[in-house]
């Protein structure tokens, strides 16, 4: 067991013939992910890697292949349309890797996808990795091994650090979920913590947060009231100055809210052990 994706996932890649899409499709196929179709408007009928059929639209791809998850690699200005298209074609799980989607677009996308009961991961995220079963995103497959630690994070490479640090001491993960660094995204910490709490394969959870917003504080409330499994956390941005966007669109301290200190305090009072740096996480999990 795992959450969100596994070996039964039938994955569709939107933007499969672009340079990013093609590169990561190759990586995902090599990992063993079941990539059943790709979409690039105007390139329907072509094949990628001699085995993945390309379609002109998501609707046609779903009809022909029964795809049940879609990953989006199209440029930011076209990504909102790609998310609407996936939702309208009846895909229940959409993962948007693209960084730089305009926030008003994301508010429209999120409200529309909620009405259609579509689960969105991202945007501006590294996607999902269920080690040994499916890699749906850009997390390097070789840095994680199967295990019982669920990982959820707002960051990309910082998550790789954590997976790598776990692997160094022989610890593996059930599923790693990158929820993305944008202020308006699809899936938040609580959604994923709830899934891990109910996943028999997951015994412990690592939650990696950062400055900006109040999702970590809300997660802390959820952990103290609803979770039985131990959670270890790390919060990035202790030294970030207020009012400056730290790379991620959502990583900003505004009007005194969203500081790392507030988040650490909230998590610690919920019984979460907060690491001082990411390489400390494995020892806190033991």
């Amino acid at each position: 067991m795992s959450i969100l994706v596994d070996k039964n996932t039938r994955l569709l890649v939107q933007g499969i013939t672009g340079s990013e899409g093609l590169f990561h499709t190759t990586q995902m196929v090599n990992y063993g992910t079941n990539v059943v179709a790709g979409v690039t408007p105007g390139k329907g009928g072509e094949w990628v890697l001699d085995k993945v059929p390309v379609f002109d639209s998501v609707k046609l791809a779903v009809e022909a292949t029964g795809a049940n998850a879609s990953i989006i690699f199209v440029p930011a200005r076209f990504a909102p349309d790609a998310m609407f298209e996936a939702a309208d074609a009846g895909i229940p799980l959409v993962i948007c890797i693209t960084e730089g989607v305009a926030v008003q677009d994301m508010m429209r996308v999120r409200n529309y996808l909620d009405q259609k009961n579509v689960r969105l991961i991202g945007p501006n995220c590294p996607g999902l990795l269920t080690p040994g079963e499916a890699k749906v995103g850009i997390i390097p497959g070789n840095i994680a091994i199967p295990g019982n630690v669920g990982v959820v994070s707002r960051s990309g490479t910082l998550t790789y650090e954590v997976l790598y640090a776990l692997k160094q001491v022989g610890m593996g993960s059930s599923t790693c979920v990158g929820i993305g660094g944008d202020p308006v995204n699809g899936t938040n910490f609580i959604d994923v913590l709830d899934m891990f709490e109910h996943d028999p394969k997951t015994e412990k959870v690592v939650m990696i947060g950062e400055i900006g917003g109040t999702d970590e504080e809300k997660a802390a409330e959820f952990i103290s009231s609803k979770m039985t499994k131990p959670v270890v956390s790390f919060i990035a941005g202790q030294t970030a100055p207020p009012g400056k966007r730290m790379g991620h669109a959502g990583a900003i301290i505004e009007g005194g809210a969203g500081t790392a200190a507030d988040k650490v305090r909230a998590l610690e009072s919920a019984g979460v052990r907060v690491a001082k740096h990411p390489e400390e996480i494995p020892s806190l999990l033991k």
Partner: peptide
């Protein structure tokens, strides 16, 4: 650093060990 979260973390850890980014 590559990646925003890791870049913030690198700053934090410099501070943790007594430096200033």
């Amino acid at each position: 650093v590559n990646g925003a979260g890791l870049a913030m973390t690198s700053m934090d850890i410099v501070k943790l060990f007594g430096g200033e980014p």
